[in-house]
């Protein structure tokens, strides 16, 4: 039946249809790779999570023994840190994503204007992307703390120099805002945002590039119209710039969430469970649960933004 149907199609195939069939050839390498590496691996990961896996070092193979939901039960009720690490990772993601998006949009708008030395500043903003390898990041953190107290800050401290006297006290400022009557929750968020400014800047290199590109693609006629109609800069931002970059906000949110997940502690935990404790089943549970949680967040957030997105066609 299927064969007959195919023959029928072949007979009827126009020049265009015949050409279209060649499309499969173009995507073939990827299709093979996707099935072999992704589909197969995901199925295997699910399988591992329901089994206890023992490595057979001699042959290089492995043996599975059915464990049912035991690994899941262990992860959620017995494992001491999994739930906590998962929650902190998700919370970090939820806090960081809006900050990174707004920071990178703001920076992109500043960098989009013509000014002297723009190339240099753009290069500086891309630097964090250039050096985000694990070892380099660790060394950079160290270097950053040293810069805060001078290169010899640590030595000076041990010598008894009172660096506190020079250091600007943040508590005083916070007290001031509390007494003005700003809600404590909001204030906590702002303070944590300021404290994480290093991480946020470091995580927004690619997003800034995407936003600059997005801003460049807005037709200038829209701005001309806004100007003729007498819109202020503020109005122009909310009525022209913001709606026009909305679709790219989705791209950036997806990128940021994925990026934040792949550098989070829960991934770290999954990899150490597998490769230092050799508990593969449990590691598969960690990976799966965190991936499902991340995907759920992605779907919810993307849906939320998509409903409010204006597509200019």
């Amino acid at each position: 039946m299927a064969e007959g149907a195919e023959k029928k199609v072949k007979k009827k195939a126009t020049l265009l249809q015949r050409r279209d069939r060649k499309g499969y050839l173009f995507i073939l390498p990827w299709l093979v790779g996707f099935i072999v590496f992704y589909v197969r691996s995901i199925i295997q990961t699910i399988q591992f999570s329901f089994n206890t896996l023992t490595m057979d070092a001699g042959v290089g193979g492995y043996a599975l023994s059915w464990a049912g939901l035991e690994n899941y039960r262990y992860a959620f009720t017995v494992h001491p840190t999994f739930k906590q690490i998962l929650t902190t990772s998700v919370m970090d993601m939820v806090i960081d994503v809006p900050l990174i998006i707004f920071f990178s949009l703001f920076m992109a708008m500043l960098l989009n204007k013509e000014f002297k030395g723009r190339g240099l500043v753009r290069a500086i903003f891309f630097l964090p992307v250039l050096m985000n390898a694990g070892a380099i990041t660790a060394a950079l953190d160290l270097s950053a703390t040293m810069m805060n107290g001078g290169v010899s800050g640590e030595v000076a401290e041990t010598a008894g120099a009172a660096s506190d006297a020079v250091a600007f006290s943040l508590d005083y400022l916070i007290d001031m805002f509390v007494s003005i009557g700003i809600p404590a929750k909001l204030l906590d968020y702002m303070v944590s945002a300021v404290e994480r400014i290093n991480d946020i800047i470091r995580a927004s290199g690619v997003q800034i590039v995407i936003f600059i590109a997005a801003l460049q693609s807005i037709p200038s006629s829209l701005y001309e119209v806004a100007k003729i109609e007498g819109a202020t800069t503020y109005e122009t931002f909310w009525k022209v710039t913001f709606p026009m970059v909305m679709p790219h906000i989705i791209t950036n949110v997806v990128y940021t969430i994925v990026d934040s997940y792949s550098t989070s502690d829960v991934v770290e935990l999954a990899s150490s469970t597998a490769f230092t404790n050799f508990n593969y089943g449990l590691s598969a549970v960690f990976s799966l649960v965190s991936a499902v949680v991340t995907c759920a967040i992605l779907v919810v957030v993307v849906n939320f933004i998509q409903k409010r997105t204006f597509y200019y066609t």
């Binding site: 995901i42 990961t45 593969y280 799966l288 991340t294």
Partner: peptide, 9 residues
């Protein structure tokens, strides 16, 4: 899907 999810397989 981050590659970490499927690193074991």
């Amino acid at each position: 899907i981050p590659p970490h999810t499927i690193m074991l397989p």
